[in-house]
């Protein structure tokens, strides 16, 4: 069997979009909009009618349909997202509080998705507490599960909204609501997962209290994870055809690329302005769009990196 690879990606965004000036007028930004524009942001998608679950379902249904994957061929469903918010319109917290305090808390989105999608053979696992690295963790887990013969085809689905009362900015990054589905297949013809690396530093679990320490640790730890991923893949920084980023400030990417020794021109950053950051899985959304716009050709070497509160640094090396 060839190495597991990513054989399909689809994503769903809320219909409503707000630009920076609208967000500023609504008091949903901490920083000056002009500064955020300098960092590459233009606006974000904000759920009004949608729920995290509806976006997850849309993304997964689209992916299965596009790839013509029979639902019963899925061996494992990995669902990422906060279960208590999954069915709340626009991810609102009022309903979530009632849900947590009643037996409705056992109405899990992962098992409902298994039923709604007709994944009759799929066992189901839910992942949480990994923030923006959740989908990475699911893909890594899928790869490992396939590698040991426990599954041949794994569907990873992530849907996460930005917290309702937190505005739309997290450490100078504008954030969209989104859902994303990734199919990891033991027999994938493209997007072979060559290597991965991940570091969790629990010391930084309290992001609000250790904000400066996290800013300082972000870059050296990110460089370390990227270096380690490239080492495991047997690639040099110059071998990387495209860096498929998480959609944080382009400025922070320029600094990180300087540290990692990867030329700036290899950053595929077209979605930073269009979508902004998502908790659901920027890198995979970007990978899909980079394939669709012809940027990525078979054999290209792709580096995906993300950071998530918690704190987690993670990267994948993928051969297109």
């Amino acid at each position: 069997m060839s190495a597991p690879g990513i054989s399909g990606i689809a994503y769903a965004l809320p219909a409503h979009r707000r630009d920076l000036s609208e967000l500023a007028a609504l008091g949903q930004l901490e920083s000056d909009p002009s500064l955020l524009a300098q960092f590459g942001f233009d606006g974000v998608h904000v759920a009004e009618e949608e729920t995290p679950y509806s976006l997850a379902t849309t993304a997964a249904t689209t992916m299965l349909s596009e790839q013509r994957v029979p639902p019963e061929s899925i061996d494992l469903l990995l669902y990422c997202g906060t279960s208590s918010l999954a069915f709340a319109p626009h991810g609102g917290t009022a309903d979530a509080a009632c849900l947590l305090a009643s037996t409705r808390r056992f109405q899990y989105p992962a098992t409902r998705l298994q039923y709604d999608l007709g994944l009759e053979r799929a066992s189901t696992i839910a992942l949480d507490q990994l923030a923006c690295t959740s989908l990475f963790a699911a893909v890594r887990l899928a790869r490992a599960t396939i590698a040991v013969g426990e599954a041949r085809r794994v569907l990873c689905v992530s849907a996460e909204f930005f917290p309702e009362c937190a505005g739309r900015e997290a450490i100078f990054n504008c954030t969209s609501d989104a859902g994303c589905a990734v199919l990891v297949d033991g027999g994938a013809q493209r997007n072979r997962i060559v290597a991965s690396a991940e570091i969790t530093k629990g010391y930084y679990w309290d992001a609000d209290a250790l904000r400066n320490e996290i800013v300082a640790s972000y870059f050296p730890t990110a460089k370390h994870v990227i270096d380690e991923t490239l080492r495991r893949a047997g690639w040099s920084p110059n071998d990387v055809t495209w860096v498929i980023p998480h959609n944080v400030s382009v400025r922070s990417w320029e600094i990180l690329l300087g540290l990692a020794g990867v030329p700036r021109a290899r950053l595929w950053d077209r979605n930073v302005s269009r979508i902004g950051h998502t908790l659901a899985g920027d890198n995979f959304i970007n990978l899909r769009d980079a394939i669709d716009d012809g940027s990525i050709r078979p054999g290209d070497r792709l580096l995906l990196f993300s950071y998530g509160y918690g704190a987690h640094w993670t990267a994948l090396a993928v051969e297109a």
């Binding site: 530093k201 400025r251 600094i255 300087g258």
Partner: peptide, 21 residues
């Protein structure tokens, strides 16, 4: 156990970009 990273060495241009940020 805090996992503090050894600061990587960078060229002056990258460091200046970090300072500016």
């Amino acid at each position: 156990r805090r996992g503090i990273a050894r600061p990587p060495l960078v060229d002056l241009a990258t460091y200046a970009l970090f300072e500016r940020s």
